[in-house]
Design a protein around this nucleic acid. Sequence first.
DNA 1: TTGAAAGCGGTACCAC
DNA 2: GTGGTACCGCTTTCAA
Lengths: 343, 343
Amino acid sequence: MKKLTIKDIANHLNVSISTVSKALNDSYEISETTKEKIRKYAKENNYQPNVTALSLKSKKTKTIGIIIPNMLNYFFAQVFKGIEKIASQKGYKIISCISNESHEKEVETIRMLSNGSIDGFILSLADETIIKNDFKHFEETIENGIPIVMFDRVAQNIDCDKVITNDFEGTVNTVKHLYRLGHKNIAFVSTMSHLKVGERRYLGYLKGLEDLHVPFNKNLVLNIEEEDYKKYESILTPFIENNTIDSVITTDESSAVAAMKVALKSGYKIPEDFSVVSFSNGILARHSNPKMTTVSQHGEIMGATAAEMLINKLEKKQPSTKTQTKIIKTDLVIRESTRPLSK
Amino acid sequence: MKKLTIKDIANHLNVSISTVSKALNDSYEISETTKEKIRKYAKENNYQPNVTALSLKSKKTKTIGIIIPNMLNYFFAQVFKGIEKIASQKGYKIISCISNESHEKEVETIRMLSNGSIDGFILSLADETIIKNDFKHFEETIENGIPIVMFDRVAQNIDCDKVITNDFEGTVNTVKHLYRLGHKNIAFVSTMSHLKVGERRYLGYLKGLEDLHVPFNKNLVLNIEEEDYKKYESILTPFIENNTIDSVITTDESSAVAAMKVALKSGYKIPEDFSVVSFSNGILARHSNPKMTTVSQHGEIMGATAAEMLINKLEKKQPSTKTQTKIIKTDLVIRESTRPLSK
DNA sequence: TTGAAAGCGGTACCAC
DNA sequence: GTGGTACCGCTTTCAA
């Protein structure tokens, strides 16, 4: 029952340990006959090299550490799926942690895994980390020679590989799309104004309006705290009822669903006289009624890209310190919540 | 730059390796003064023991392997969160794989991780594995002394710890609840008739009817293939329109959402003259319009329970082979899609 | 109170 | 072609 070791094989076959090792690694030094004999015995007894010993020797673990702020978020789950796919293709294992948006947990995790448990990290910043603006733990990690790839919520000033979405262009395009449909009173609802991502989306909104010479109206911009998710509807009600609005762009699905509900309750018809577009490509959009038009984010591709970048870096002979940022394009996926304004 | 080792400390302080090791482990053999000196130096230079070396020595990795069929499924994400929470509390790391419902990937993962990468597994069966009815890989694993905890989709005949939900009672209660609201024509829609879980839910439906002396009508039972998720609505339309139905119980959220849509389209009002109840406690239920009444599954608790069971087993002195099955109760969470039948 | 050395399971260099 | 052995970083027994 006990795991078979190279030593056991050596004893059983009356050869030396090194012979067994070499035979199993198909070394040219060993004769075909002994190789065959050893391989046969190994296979029959289901020999599996002990990865821990290998790691200790090679100083490589072939595992990637992943830190995700919130696994219940569909976007992150998609990214995770993308990472997992590439990693397992390339023979890497994944150790994953959920930071739960906690800075402390993030720091702890990094420390805990930087001790030979992993070869590199893929992560997205915890909310708290962004608010505290404290990135020391990343700097230390990189200094220690452990590469990091950040995705989506990235730290501007940390020099590491990054994968982000083209949020800015995403909103610009959305604004233009709505404008073409006849919308002039386009509102913008953000649940992530404190994040860079949120800022980029907001700036895209402004740029879109500007390009179209639509005057900016600050009353049509609403920032909500994500923690208030239970109050989305009550916060949105006065916003939608007291302003002249014919369409809303939101930075996330939940608030979009809430906006749809409020608009319907306020007597609007969707999409006849009120349109809703939301960032993110979660399940809610596909299951809402009517189905939601979204700025879709391609989480899986982001994850896969991040994994490829990291593994490339890990397997390069001389580890270059050059870092790059890849931008994954969003797509405007038109569903049922937008259409030309019936006027 | 390089990681500090016990040897470096020994050299620097002119003591032996074993002294350093003992000092850092607070052994009684070492004098307070040397201990102090060593600890100080270690702390200042941020010494961290190499976990790989520790694992090799102790034959424990303090990591748990998790195999999840589908990470985009909210229920599994919840379970994952629950596992992660307990694991990190108890100092365990998590290596996770997504089987994508593939038997091959599941087998491969088990093999790949059974080589000293992990101390035990927590997993839920892949669809394919259930269909093939092939559980050899689990048996081997257990024989090799690696404990497994299965949750939700478990293998009846494998002797290991398990965590499941009381699906049977869940449906019984739901049927009774609907009956009390005045419903006599309760339909049952399953997207998992081939799974044990699905069977238990179906049997609960039958039992509920029987207890209430409501005659069973086979026309009110619909089995859909999960892969047909894009066709849910078109499959449900004739079912709902050609039968006398005043309420539906579904085994999952997606089909419940589809059922709601079809019912609305067919002229029913929800919940005035048509009720919908769904298993699972995902986001869809909370965001649908109207919000859905659910048989809520407590994924996080299941995950946490599984993690506790596994860690207990791992840390017990003499590993008992006794196995247990824990049943996590479901809750009927009443939202807006059910209420007394008007009339 | 401290240190030498074996061993965990491999790899790889060097002798033979 | 095969075998001896040092080493990866740490723990632990035993001797000093």
